[in-house]
């Protein structure tokens, strides 16, 4: 399964979900598939997009939140799985795009890639709904069920390693603009106030 194809399937099944993308190729592919501004594209804090998504999900319990994490990011913050299991947000789906390499740095192999089992780690952390999907047909078949299920739900998307760095460009805005576009999109859709009367 290619990352692009997986993102296209999930984009088609996302409904009205908000999304959070960890920095990396999956984020670029999500942007290419959706051009979504109801997505926060995290441009730093590698490993902690998962925690950011958890905070978003807990603050908006009636909204669905999709997290697109990566294997390198997950390994930088495996403790996020303990916290996620403890908080047990029903509205959070945690997808890990697992290509077993650090793709944006010339596909350097992931640490311990031949032995690690992220689904097993998630289950052992207390996330009962955890599964791996390694082909597009299964993802197409299971996506509706995953999206409709209560979370937390951990899905390891086993994808092919690809070598072309930045073959798909990232979203064409950055920094504070990510904050304001996402925050304003949330305000518009949900009718809530993220920013105060003076804009901060």
């Amino acid at each position: 399964m290619k990352t692009r194809d997986a993102m296209k399937v999930l984009a088609a099944h996302r409904g009205g979900s908000l999304a959070v993308c960890a920095l990396g190729m999956a984020s670029n592919e999500w942007w290419a598939a959706t051009k979504s501004e109801e997505t926060f594209y995290v441009h730093g804090a590698m490993g902690f997009a998962a925690s950011f998504a958890l905070g978003l999900a807990l603050s908006l319990p009636k909204e669905h939140v999709l997290l697109f994490n990566a294997d390198g990011s997950l390994c930088m913050n495996l403790g996020c799985l303990l916290t996620e299991a403890g908080a047990a947000p029903k509205n959070l789906k945690h997808f890990v795009v697992d290509n077993r390499v650090y793709q944006t740095v010339s596909a350097v192999p992931m640490v311990n890639r031949n032995l690690s089992d992220y689904v097993g780690i998630a289950r052992a952390a207390g996330i009962a709904k955890a599964r791996e999907i390694d082909n597009v047909a299964d993802l197409e078949r299971l996506a509706p069920e995953i999206m409709a299920s209560d979370g937390p739900y951990f899905v390891n998307l086993r994808v092919e390693a690809e070598s072309a760095h930045l073959a798909v460009p990232p979203n064409n805005y950055e920094g504070a603009e990510v904050k304001f576009r996402f925050g304003r999109a949330v305000e518009k859709r949900l009718g809530i106030k993220v920013f105060g009367p003076q804009g901060y």
Binding site: G55, G79, I192, V194
Partner: peptide, 26 residues
């Protein structure tokens, strides 16, 4: 108060950062 015990402090600050976008003070 929604209390989220975490395993590492960076989780705490990034959870609060996500909650900002839900209009929640943390």
């Amino acid at each position: 108060v929604i209390h989220v015990p975490v395993a590492r402090e960076a989780e705490a600050v990034t959870i609060c950062s996500g909650a900002f976008f839900g209009g929640v003070r943390s």
